[in-house]
Structures are given as C-alpha cells and as structure tokens.
C-alpha cells in the first residue's frame, strides 16, 4: 500500500516541527505574518498548499478532520484534501462542523459557531492586505512594523468614491488585537464578525507566499471602516430555498437559461442539517437537477 511509504500526514517530522514553530510565533503575535519554509506539496499552488501544510502540522491521530471549499464539503478541492489526509494520516474525517476538531477551509467560515478546542485552518492566496496598493515587500513590512495603516483606508476610500459604498465584499481587511492589519483570506465579509472573539483557534497558511498567521481564541478582530460609512455585512432578501434558514450566507444557483435561479446555503453541512423535509422536496429536486 502506497500510504505506508509516507510519514504521518505526509510531511516529515522536521518540517512539521518547523511549521509548528512558525504557528507558535504566529499565535504569540496575533495577525503578524510569520515567514516559514513552505514545502512543495503534491498539488498546485492556489489549491491550498499553505492550508494543507498547516493542517499536516497540527493534525494528530485522534483528530477528526473536516475540509470545506466555499462552504461545501463535496467540491473537488475539499474531497481531494480530505482524501489526501485519509490516505496519509488515516485520520477520521467528517462533514459535520460540530464533530470536527480540525477544519480546513477555503473562503468560508462554517455557519455553526465554532467551539473551544477546534482549529480552523484557512487557505490563503495573498497574505498581504496592503499588496495591491504597495507592491514592495520591504515597504509593506516597514508599514506593518510602524503601524502605518493609512493606505488601507485609501483603498476603502476608492471603493466609496467609485461605487458609493465600500464595495469590497471578500478579503475585507481587519485589525487584529489593536495592532496588525490582516487579510482574512478571501472569505465573504459576511464571515468577518465570526472571527471576533471566536472560541476556536484560527490559523492561516499561504503556501506560495510562505507565510503563516493566526488569531488566537477570544481575540478582538475589527473590520476597518469609515465613521460615516460603517462596516456592514451582506443581507439576503429571501431565506435559503432548501432549508429556509435566514441570517446565513447564500449562493446563487442558476437553474436554467431562462433566468431561473435559487439562493441556497453555501454551507452544505448546515443546510442538510436544517432541512425540514426529506429529499423528495420540490426545491431539493430542482437543486439536484441543477447540479
């Protein structure tokens, strides 16, 4: 069996130790981007190489792993990474948020509130929140060091000047523990309030950019805004078409080429556990057809 040739969770122990040291430092300085010697992983950059390395470093044999991609447990990225750790670490996997001890995520925070003892691992494409305004790494590091964060508001100013409101809807910059400005990875800003005072440990891994950062449990996380344009999350006019939940993040699903559409929970686990009726339900059939 091929998996017998791999060390537990694919990475060798020295590498995992190196990553854990970076994680410890990141937890000690919330929001600070710690450089680490990112390894080549058996997947392309942009598919979660950073998140996978962090998961591999924190995973133990008794952990229960959940992997989501845009909230869904059944998309390619989520299935592939879950399969990867089933094979290389032989850990138990689940789709239920409450059962999981480690959750690796791409672009969402689960709807169900996280609890103490859980670890949420984010896959991060570009860890530097100032990057699109200041291309020089030496300069952005200096700006972080000297807490010069005016530039972040220049971006928000541009949004309002162009669109009349803060049009940034994902990767919305946050101020962590009153010190570092941090990119929360491309999660919708809908999820930003969930990061504040969260009971779970949140770890962020960027494989290509070789950075790890963290938000320890119960840390203050504030979304940046203007006094006269306060931070606001997206609101949805209708409840989820499948489970009827409100106050959750919805995805738009195109049903046909005649303008038919429905809005359903992006968190598939939350949606299935909140569905009032069985799979013979009318909308559920439409949903299955749409897929």
């Amino acid at each position: 069996m091929i998996s017998a040739a791999y060390n537990f969770a694919y990475l060798d122990e020295q590498t995992k130790r190196m990553i854990r040291r970076a994680i410890l430092k990141a937890v000690a300085i919330p929001g600070y981007q710690v450089p680490f010697a990112s390894r080549e992983m058996p997947m392309p950059y942009g598919w979660g190489t950073g998140g996978v390395q962090v998961t591999a470093a924190v995973l133990g044999p008794d952990d229960v792993l959940k992997v989501i991609d845009q909230g869904a447990d059944d998309t390619t990225n989520a299935v592939a990474i879950r399969g990867f750790f089933e094979k290389t670490a032989r850990v138990r996997t689940t789709t239920a948020t409450a059962e999981a001890t480690v959750i690796q995520t791409r672009h969402r925070i689960p709807e169900e509130p996280l609890t103490a003892g859980q670890i949420l691992v984010y896959q991060v494409p570009i860890p530097e929140p100032l990057r699109f305004l200041e291309p020089r790494e030496t300069e952005t590091r200096k700006m972080h060091a000297l807490t010069e964060y005016g530039l972040m508001h220049v971006k928000l100013y541009e949004d309002i000047a162009r669109h009349g409101h803060i049009a940034t809807t994902y990767a919305y910059p946050v101020h962590v523990a009153g010190r570092y400005v941090m990119d929360p990875s491309p999660i919708p800003k809908f999820d930003n309030p969930k990061m504040n005072d969260c009971e779970a440990l949140q770890l962020f891994g960027a494989g290509r950019e070789k950075r790890i950062y963290a938000i320890p449990p119960h840390t203050e996380v504030v979304s940046l805004d203007f006094e006269d344009h306060p931070f606001r999350v997206q609101e949805f006019a209708e409840p989820c078409a499948l489970c009827g939940s409100t106050g959750v993040y919805l995805d738009e699903v195109i049903l046909d080429d005649r303008g038919g559409r429905m809005f359903v929970c992006s968190d598939t686990d939350y949606c299935t556990s909140h569905r009032p009726s069985g799979p013979d339900d009318q909308s559920a059939a439409e949903w299955e057809n749409a897929r």
């Binding site: 005016g150 508001h153 541009e158 006094e227």
Partner: peptide, 19 residues
C-alpha cells in the same frame, strides 16, 4: 487611485476616518 484619494492619503495616514 483617484485624485481625491491621493490628496486624502496623508490625512488618512494621520487618522482621519470620516469619508
């Protein structure tokens, strides 16, 4: 970034937070 943001950048850098 726009002319307005160019002029406002220094003000934001010293803490102006009212659009």
């Amino acid at each position: 970034v726009s002319a307005g943001a160019n002029v406002g950048e220094r003000l934001m850098a010293v803490g102006a937070r009212h659009y």
